[in-house]
């Protein structure tokens, strides 16, 4: 700990030593827990990914074998899950931002009614993925589900929401949008309400209409919040599990809804391949780190 100290000329006073002691005492519980349940797992992940660890008694170094296996004989379909994740992100991120920003623009004015509408918009974000998906699985049921009944009453052919490999990820995105837009809308509302009133007043005097004010002033000023939403949505995408496992318990038709977590779980449940599972975790870790790095860079450049 002392090593991190920058070279300082003056000797360490007794006072400083006392402060150091107090400080470390305060953070000690947090540091211990952080070490056990965040740092250590990451280290174990990296180390065991280069071994044939089976979780119990086998542990031989295996070099890059696990990584090579993932790229050649991908038995748990991890690569497919990453592609699914990519598709999910491509569909979900723009739609989510568009919807939550749009909803926020609709109800951002500070009125009593809007407050209640906003609360109602947030309610779908309250419940667990399991509860959300249980209702949606029932509504999307190909035969008795209300959505297909509604569609066919409008003359639109039934959609096979839960059994069509081309539709599976669309289904996931629809449910995730219903589940996720409310929370992001709240963020946008706060940001819109924070837009400087005098800017808008000035634009009004210049003769700008409501539409122009929205597109030329409000939306550009929402850029930081959009980056924040993007970052959280990207990272959230890696956690995708509850809703999907409820809608597609075994990863969907032809693994079309398999998520990375499900693929990692397969490696454990089907063959105690802890080493393989760790290698997948490490790949995810690298992707997440690269993504957040790029997003933060982009965010900084816009200022």
């Amino acid at each position: 700990m002392e090593k991190q100290l920058t070279p300082r000329r003056r000797p360490v006073t007794k006072m400083q030593r006392k402060t150091d002691f107090t400080g470390w005492c305060f953070v000690l519980p947090a540091v211990l827990l952080f070490f056990c349940f965040i740092l250590l797992p990451i280290v174990i992940s990296v180390v065991t990914s280069f071994s044939d660890f089976n979780g119990i008694n086998k542990y031989e170094p295996w070099g890059f074998h696990n990584y090579v296996e993932i790229f050649t004989r991908d038995i748990t379909r991890f690569r497919k899950s990453i592609l699914n994740l990519g598709l999910y992100v491509v569909l979900f991120v723009p739609l989510n931002i568009f919807l939550s920003m749009g909803l926020a623009l609709l109800v951002s004015k500070r009125t009593k009614t809007n407050k209640y509408i906003r609360m109602a918009f947030y309610i779908p974000s309250l419940t667990s993925g399991i509860a959300v998906a249980s209702v949606w699985a029932w509504m999307l049921n190909p035969e008795a589900g209300i959505i297909n009944i509604f569609l066919s009453s409008m003359g639109i052919p039934k959609v096979n929401w839960l059994n069509d490999p081309n539709i599976a990820m669309v289904t996931v995105v629809i449910v995730a949008l219903w589940n996720g837009c409310g929370a992001n809308m709240v963020l946008y509302v706060a940001a819109i309400q924070g837009v400087n009133e005098s800017l808008i007043e000035a634009a009004k005097i210049e003769g700008a209409g409501a539409f122009k004010i929205t597109t030329k002033i409000t939306i550009p000023l929402l850029r930081p919040i959009t980056f924040f939403v993007m970052t959280t949505v990207f990272i959230g995408a890696f956690q995708l599990y509850d809703t999907v496992v409820m809608l597609f318990p075994s990863g969907g038709p032809q693994n079309s809804a398999l998520t990375p977590i499900m693929a990692i779980n397969r490696a454990i449940n089907d063959g105690f391949l802890y080493g393989r599972a760790s290698a997948m975790s490490v790949i995810l870790l690298l992707i997440v780190s690269a993504l957040t790095f790029v997003l933060q860079k982009l965010n900084k450049e816009t200022y």
Partner: peptide, 14 residues
């Protein structure tokens, strides 16, 4: 920024 998804297996081992 790391999601729990990248470390749930080693957390289980720990």
């Amino acid at each position: 920024m790391l999601p729990f998804a990248v470390m749930f297996i080693p957390t289980y081992i720990v």
